[in-house]
Computed example of a mutant assay.
Amino acid sequence: MIVVTTPTSSIGGEVLQGLLDREAQVRVIARDPSRLPSHVQGRVDVVRGSHSDPDVVSQAFADADAVFWLVPPDYRTHSVEASYVDFTRPACDALTSQRVERVVGVSVLGRGSALADNAGLVTASLAMRDLIAKTGVGFRALALPSFMNNLLGQVEAIRSQGAFFDVLSADRKFPTVATRDIAAVAVELLLDDSWTGQDDVAVLGPEDLSCNDMARVMSEVLERPIRYQRIPGEAFKAGLLGNGMSEAMAQGLLDMRQAKDNGLDNVEARTSRSTTPTSFRQWCEEVLKPAVLA
């Protein structure tokens, strides 16, 4: 039995589908089971509730061989660390009491780097990673850069203004990854019962690109001029606050972006093992372009 958390999220949903395609036995934790895709309902065991709830995770982890762990963002949190670490504490207790053998968790790049010490969501995610590791469970932490799919949040600006915005330096090259490739790595690890111990698994797209590079690729794929516009950190944060985000989360996101601009995501050397197949151009052709043209 494999337990999938956040089964209606982008990554969690793709992990769930990948496991079902391989005919795995799956249990999901869902706050609202009605949000599960119709083709999934009836094919998985469902435990209703939040995976921050001790009773929910204890029930869900019973007789489970492996767990896919992802903490959903809490945009109204008063503490970024609490939104990761405190959220995960009940799961750590349940991993031990229910004797779960293996966990595959979504984490971030930067462990061991001084750049991660004050990097907002990165710092909190790595603290969560270490909390899970202390249980002694077999653990693979997926060490991830920024997601290509994050650009989908700027589809309207790309469509109407021919631009996308961030606080990153225009020429800073960094890795990104498509969520479908993250899910593919997670599925393989969840189905493989031969590994033990604990390790970080870097998951990197096939190239490092700057925001200006991305703008060039988007322009070519969309067949219209797309530019990158760098914005000041305070303006970035003000926009998040204006959209209802808490002070703590807005500052945490800004701290993370600034750490990435200082090279946080460049600390991990790309290897054949860590390189995923989807290029940014391919992602633009297959995901971004349909979204912009919709």
Rank of each mutant, 00 (worst) to 15 (best):
V104L: 02
V104R: 02
V104T: 04
G105I: 05
G105V: 09
G105H: 12
V106C: 06
V106W: 04
S107F: 01
S107C: 11
V108A: 14
G110R: 01
R111V: 13
S113E: 07
S113M: 09
A114F: 15
L115G: 08
N118G: 12
N118P: 10
L121S: 10
V122Y: 07
V122Q: 12
T123E: 10
T123V: 08
T123H: 07
T123A: 05
S125C: 13
R129L: 12
D130G: 00
L131S: 10
L131V: 09
I132D: 08
I132G: 04
A133N: 09
K134R: 15
T135H: 10
T135P: 00
T135R: 14
G136M: 07
V137H: 04
R140H: 09
L142M: 14
L142A: 09
A143I: 12
A143T: 05
S146L: 15
F147N: 06
M148W: 03
N149Y: 01
N150S: 11
L151I: 03
L151M: 13
L151K: 11
L152W: 01
L152F: 02
Q154F: 08
V155K: 08
E156M: 09
A157S: 10
A157K: 07
I158N: 01
I158G: 01
R159H: 03
S160D: 12
S160E: 15
Q161I: 10
A163K: 01
F165G: 00
V167A: 03
V167T: 09
L168Y: 08
L168C: 04
L168N: 11
A170S: 15
A170K: 12
D171T: 13
D171A: 10
K173D: 06
K173S: 13
P175G: 07
T176N: 15
V177S: 01
A178W: 08
T179Q: 15
T179P: 14
T179K: 13
D181P: 02
D181A: 05
I182P: 04
A183K: 06
V185W: 03
A186V: 11
A186E: 08
V187C: 03
L189M: 09
L190Q: 04
D192R: 07
D192P: 02
D193S: 14
W195F: 09
W195Y: 01
T196I: 06
T196F: 08
T196Y: 10
G197D: 06
Q198H: 02
D199H: 04
D200K: 07
A202Q: 11
A202N: 05
L204S: 12
G205E: 03
P206C: 05
E207M: 09
E207V: 03
L209H: 05
L209G: 10
S210H: 05
S210P: 13
C211N: 15
M214G: 13
A215H: 05
M218R: 00
S219A: 07
E220N: 11
V221L: 03
E223F: 03
E223G: 04
E223V: 08
R224I: 05
P225E: 15
P225H: 07
P225K: 14
I226W: 09
I226T: 01
R227T: 06
Y228S: 00
Q229W: 01
Q229A: 06
Q229N: 05
I231C: 00
I231G: 00
I231N: 01
I231W: 09
P232S: 04
P232G: 01
P232Q: 03
G233R: 02
G233F: 05
G233K: 02
E234K: 08
A235T: 10
F236L: 10
F236C: 05
F236K: 05
K237R: 14
